[in-house]
Design a protein around this nucleic acid. Structure first.
Lengths: 139, 139
DNA sequence: GTTGACTCCGTATCAGGGTACGGAGTTTAG
DNA sequence: CTAAACTCCGTACCCTGATACGGAGTCAAC
């Protein structure tokens, strides 16, 4: 049977070869391991780890946080994992609130723009150019 | 009265001097203009433009989009401005939906983790390490 | 035993939105 | 007049998550 080389692993995980190397440089994936000749041979654990990374990314964790999660996984540290998930949740909720404000502001501007007639200045541009305090804080 | 130099302008607009230079390099702000001796003198229009930029940023527009908005502002092109705002709104709403999914997934994991006892694997880590299809698509 | 595909490794580059640094010139307050 | 503070300008660097490139080595098939 074929040894699991970097290219095959990349394909199974749905990432690029360069990405795997990158994760190795970042310490998310071991870069030591058995070799056949000059070529590193990977195992199914590496694939699982890659999938772990992709799932955590989908939940919005940064690669640094994922590094932490991976070591928690090794020790099965539930409290710490929950704390990380909580922290992430907090940030997600904060960002959600910001985005909701942004959405409402945009909707308001668009609606307003549709109801005004041409001699008046465009509300969208006008609002952006205004001098009062609209300042939702910058992102 | 004091001439409006870059430092003063930066302070009034709440940005750094380097940021103003950066915007000039990006073409968002003119870098030609009256000088007193070697020093560029700014005018209130520049401050207004900076505020415009900050407001648009707060709504999530990129600097490139803001460049477009600024030229629309000069011609007062309502239709185009509305189109840009619509496009932005679409992206904001899409991101909102993604973040809601992420939030729900995180909440579920955290709640689940609180209700299981220690011999079982931590649901958070376990879910991330699972082999089934959880894949919300990556951000 | 050669050709084509793959791997290794280091380094560079991308996007986006700035920030930092350094040396020289200028301005302004005291 | 002098010293501090500011400005100019060019260039380099930060962060994040990758992606690209190039030359050399290696492996597998025919």
């Amino acid at each position: 049977m074929k040894p699991l080389t970097i290219g095959t692993l990349a394909k199974s995980a749905g990432v690029g070869v360069e990405t795997i190397r990158y994760y190795q440089r970042r310490g998310l994936l071991s870069d030591k391991g058995p070799r056949r000749g000059a070529y590193r041979i990977y195992e199914s654990g590496d694939l699982a780890r890659l999938r772990f990374i992709r799932r955590a990314q989908a939940l919005g964790f940064s690669l640094d946080e994922i590094g932490d999660l991976l070591s928690l996984d090794e020790t099965d540290d539930r409290a710490e994992a929950r704390a990380l998930a909580q922290a992430r949740l907090g940030e997600v909720e904060k960002r959600l609130r910001q985005l909701q404000e942004i959405r409402d502001a945009l909707k308001g501007l668009i609606a307003c723009c549709e109801h005004t007639e041409s001699p008046a200045p465009c509300p969208i541009l006008h609002t952006l150019a205004e001098n009062d305090e609209l300042d939702t804080h910058a992102r």
